[in-house]
């Protein structure tokens, strides 16, 4: 082993720990506005992810300790949990997490080798396989008459005997669902926006949640754990695409601000699209990656079969990463036209 013999203090564990920490404001807002149910989801996903990670490491003959310590499995678990409906049944959470860790992460070669973002793979599998269960969102506390306690949430998640009336009283369509259903019923955007679930920009509560994720994301950027290119390009992609459509037909397409502050966009922009392993690595590549994901999100939201498109957009862009990277290699020091190798 030769030089260098000193290293910076940073480590994968530290990076991942900061990502988790940056999610905390979002989680706090989540609990505050939507009730404590999310804590159950998060815990369940975390335990499942760690167990799955340990088993897979053992099966693949890797030392468990350094890899469990890197916290990457927990990050995956949290991102998935925060993308799932807050009252999703326990088996949905477990299935999604298992799929994310076992298939999307380890079958692709483990930490650093996965082509797709594991959390988003888990999410995509769930929404394709269990579209109905994936709509069990708890409504914002502001709008629900009798909010669920932690125990009640847990019992909903674990399939306990909760009267259907109670459940119906707390679950609600997300703003994106509402918009989609409304549009399908030939209402105009303005009519739909008068529904109680909509707030100033996005949905009531959801705007605050988005704001909290934005805050966490900015912290990560300030710490240089994520680059500015991906989130900015992602948000710009969404804003431009939504704005373009809205400009031409405000009646049929949601406003750009609404799309920006819909749940999952901020989370996607700062925490999911910025996943280094499955994202582009070059500066220009990151811009393309983010912008493409933003564009695709709006396209899927508008014309696709599912209300939200962040997960699919990011997965699609993950696919393009090798190509993007290859064609956006930055100029190196002292590079001249002659020494520039054509991308092979």
């Amino acid at each position: 082993m030769a030089s260098p013999f000193i290293i910076d203090r940073s480590s994968v564990t530290q990076v991942m720990a900061w990502v988790l920490a940056a999610l905390l404001p979002g989680i706090a807002v989540y609990v505050w506005l939507f009730g404590p149910g999310i804590l159950v989801t998060l815990s369940l996903a975390t335990v499942t992810a760690l167990a799955a990670e340990a088993v897979m490491l053992k099966a693949r003959g890797y030392p468990a300790k350094p890899f469990l310590m890197d916290l990457s499995a927990i990050v995956t678990a949290w991102l998935l949990a925060l993308s799932l409906p807050s009252l999703a049944p326990w088996w949905l959470i477990v299935t999604g997490t298992l799929f994310a860790i076992v298939v999307a992460k380890h079958l692709y070669g483990g930490l650093g080798q996965n082509i797709f973002n594991p959390a988003m793979v888990g999410y995509a599998v769930l929404i394709v396989s269990f579209p109905v269960q994936m709509t069990q969102w708890a409504g914002p506390l502001e709008l629900t008459a009798t909010p669920l306690t932690l125990a009640q949430s847990a019992s909903v998640i674990f399939g306990g005997d909760v009267p259907k009336a109670t459940l119906d009283a707390v679950t609600m369509a997300t703003p994106l669902d509402a918009l989609r259903t409304g549009l399908l019923q030939q209402h105009t955007v303005d009519e739909i926006m008068t529904q109680s679930i909509f707030g100033h920009y996005g949905g009531i509560g959801f705007e605050w949640l988005a704001g909290a994720f934005l805050l966490g994301g900015l912290v990560l950027w300030a710490l240089r754990i994520i680059s500015w290119q991906v989130p900015l390009a992602f948000l710009a992609g969404i804003w431009l695409a939504a704005g373009f459509l809205h400009f031409f037909d405000a009646g049929r397409f949601g406003a750009p601000w609404f799309h920006l502050f819909a749940p999952s966009v901020m989370l996607g922009a700062f925490f999911i699209a910025t996943d280094p392993v499955s994202g582009a690595t070059t500066p220009r590549g990151k811009l393309i990656f983010g912008f493409g994901a933003g564009l695709l999100t709006i396209i899927i939201r508008t014309w696709g079969g599912y209300p939200d498109g962040v997960a699919f957009a990011i997965l699609l862009m993950n696919l393009c990463v090798p190509l993007i990277d290859q064609y956006t290699q930055p100029r190196v020091y002292g590079e001249t036209k002659k020494t520039r190798a054509p991308p092979a």
Binding site: M1, Y62, P63, K65, P66
Partner: peptide, 13 residues
């Protein structure tokens, strides 16, 4: 370089 992963089992180099 012989480093990393399998069989290293967390040992410091």
């Amino acid at each position: 370089p012989v480093v990393m992963l399998k069989q290293v089992s967390g040992e410091a180099r």
